[in-house]
Design a protein around this nucleic acid. Sequence first.
DNA 1: ACCTGAACACCGTTCAAGT
DNA 2: ACCTGAACACCGTTCAAGT
Lengths: 214, 214
Amino acid sequence: MARPRKPLLSRERIVATALALVDAEGLAAVSTRRLAAELGVSGPSLYNHFTTKDEILGAVADSVIADVDLSMFEDGTDWPEALTAWARSYRSALTAHPHLVPFLAHGPGRRPAGLRLADAVFGAMVKAGWPPAQATRIGALMRYFVTGSALASFAGGFVDDPGAYDPADYPHLGQAHLLATHRREIDEGAFETGLRALVAGLVLQYRELGVAGP
Amino acid sequence: MARPRKPLLSRERIVATALALVDAEGLAAVSTRRLAAELGVSGPSLYNHFTTKDEILGAVADSVIADVDLSMFEDGTDWPEALTAWARSYRSALTAHPHLVPFLAHGPGRRPAGLRLADAVFGAMVKAGWPPAQATRIGALMRYFVTGSALASFAGGFVDDPGAYDPADYPHLGQAHLLATHRREIDEGAFETGLRALVAGLVLQYRELGVAGP
DNA sequence: ACCTGAACACCGTTCAAGT
DNA sequence: ACCTGAACACCGTTCAAGT
């Protein structure tokens, strides 16, 4: 078969299959040949629909970003609460596809869902009374925090072995080996603590502004 | 030549050359063959000193983390100021090697410099009166924020073209094309705004603790 | 112990050929 | 327009052979 009368592939099917493959076997499993095999097609066929493998992963990333809830910016929720709810939804969308996060970390932004997200948070902060320059910063810094926390291999960076940390070298890490076990709780707790601090700190800055807010 | 009487390679020289190559040409340029060529040897030689390419990059990453200043945790600086100064030093160490940051983002932690860093911040927070569980979270959440901000392609995610953002699609992004130009200032400003908010928010939480601090 | 070249099983991407 | 197989220039890693 050379060309079927009905196309075998579509961008949508490629993106969906690539995401399933990332979730099932990790980023490294997504080679053009492997992905094509999963789609029942030969490797070069993908290049009829995307110009590059990076573009495929970019589309996958954008499809994940599209899952982030933005409704809290339009339903009258006050800005500190909206920011908090949005950050949680943003993080959930990322941690739902942990293997994809390292890719998300370097190729974000200029695709539709990423732009909608940036637009929504910027617009909501400006509407709440923040000067545009500050609204831009808030969007950026929240992204830093959420992305960083989704990468979240902090606790995963500790090995599950009591002998791994010589007290002479690391006097305060006596319990560090326990962290591997509790990784998820620690990541979650650190995220919530940081989110609370971040939003509370921004509320202080907002008050210093002396701006007419809601 | 098969084996020279003086070894041609050492872990130190491999790490230093790899870092120089990353800085000069990016992560993608670091293949085992290319790195070996830079060192004047053949590809497989590297495997006499490291078991895997990932291990080489891990050592490079740790050498960068070793540049983070930790002295503020031991010279009597109060904890909010120490945390602020440390975060700035941490971010500087990362942004000094921007091409390495995507790698830093997924493989951190269990190497000596990363452990020293975790030990220092944890120890200082406990000494300042934070309960150990909270001290752990503070170390983690600061890392999230710093790592996320070093990745910092937020502003870089916007294209430098006024026509790129249809106001019908993104009603608030009218000036977004300007962001590409000011990327560095925006990243810096967002980092500083976020850092201030984060530390101020933690100070509030610390007061709620009602703990005997210094 | 530490280097080499050859080899294995892969990559992403291009391209002429097929319908 | 959309798929194919062959090909190009790469990968990371293993391994027997050399000294």
